[in-house]
Design a protein around this nucleic acid. Structure first.
Lengths: 224, 224
DNA sequence: CCTACCGATCGGTAGG
DNA sequence: CCTACCGATCGGTAGG
């Protein structure tokens, strides 16, 4: 019996993996459960045994996305480093997370486009306290003179997330504007995109005198 | 006969309008031609008389998106203002265009996610010369000492587009992170988002001594 | 611009 | 986890 349960859990896991991949590549409406079942190597009704409806599958896919931050944000924000380092490591964590698997960023953006009201509610309920804490740190940075006085903390944080998500999800599509030859190694493109992203954020957040290399690029862990 | 043609063109136009709206809200795969026909107030086969297939309709929707920049970019870039003003007015034009109708930004992002290879090719063919010109201006700005020496022109321009698209398309979804009460006027949210966007770009592009208010916010024309 | 109609595929169920 | 099957909807065509 425990054998069966373990086997079931493995199939469940594989269904979720293929769903993540296909939803991110083709969108929810562009992906039939038949297609997911084929990718896993099972029949459609078997998939529906694990996830009663297509909606349930979607919900679980996105739940997994949020779960990471619900557990990670508290850790990042309660570490006892200086404000400046804390903010820096926040951005690094963001970049690292989405860079490790670019399905995650595409999935996030698609969900914001497809179900804006639902994402609004989830984001508000789950992220609000942590994100407000970040803003308080930025405010403290202003008082310290580390952070520029004209920064709008809420809007700034929003743009940080937007830039990271955007760079990973569609960065190399937009960067094609500059290819005059054929497509070059998109990995190098993404790397310089992330480097410039960090420069932009660093420069626009901190007062000039604190502008040494707080945000060293660290893009070695590009994968998949 | 000319009466008929005029009537036909009006229906065609209305089909395109509803397609733009529905594709941007629900995505291509999430929008049936039946749904579009209903919105226009005609039958499905009538829609297919104007656009032989659903793909043709999609193509024309996105062609309209590109056409604007193919005609606008040359004008913006050949105006004889200073480099600094030129770059500033570029960003203003970007913001104004996408702010005027947020379907445009959602549509653009969706297409980048759904058909990355096709968008790559279109973007490379249509935008490459103009976007490279922008980079040359930034390079000149570096030599003048107006632009910061550590700017990566290509990556910077990519991020500019990403920030504008992202802010208009999903800005108020992300900004919900900060609502602790109910949803506040999302118009005000978007306004401060754009203002911070311009601050970030200005600060990270120009050398400090050229940092007066080149990019005055100008968000009064929010519509739809 | 319409009615009438098509095969294919959609998400999902019955029953084992 | 499977076979067999369901009604509904998909994009599209014939013909006027």
């Amino acid at each position: 019996m425990s054998e069966l349960k373990k086997a079931n859990r493995n199939v469940r896991k594989r269904i979720l993996e293929e769903a993540v991949r296909l939803f991110s590549e083709r969108g929810f409406d562009g992906t039939s459960i038949q297609l997911i079942a084929d990718a896993v190597g099972i029949r459609k009704p078997s998939l529906l045994y694990h996830f009663n409806t297509k909606e349930k599958l979607r919900d679980e896919v996105y739940e997994k996305l949020m779960l990471h931050w619900k557990s990670e944000l508290p850790k990042l924000l309660t570490s006892d480093t200086s404000d400046k380092d804390r903010f820096t490591s926040m951005i690094k964590a963001l970049v690292r997370y989405f860079l490790a698997d670019n399905h995650r960023s595409r999935l996030s953006i698609r969900e914001m486009l497809d179900r804006p009201e639902i994402v609004r509610d989830v984001v508000r309920e789950q992220l609000n306290p942590w994100v407000k804490l970040i803003c308080e740190y930025i405010q403290m940075g202003k008082l310290n003179g580390v952070v520029r006085a004209d920064v709008n903390p809420e809007a700034f944080v929003t743009h940080v997330i937007m830039l990271v998500l955007g760079s990973v999800a569609v960065g190399n599509v937009l960067a094609a504007m500059f290819d005059d030859t054929q497509e070059q190694s998109s990995n190098h493109q993404l790397e310089s995109l992330v480097q410039e992203l960090e420069r932009i954020l660093r420069t626009s957040l901190f007062e000039p005198q604190y502008l040494q290399a707080e945000l060293k690029p660290e893009v070695s862990t590009v994968e998949k």
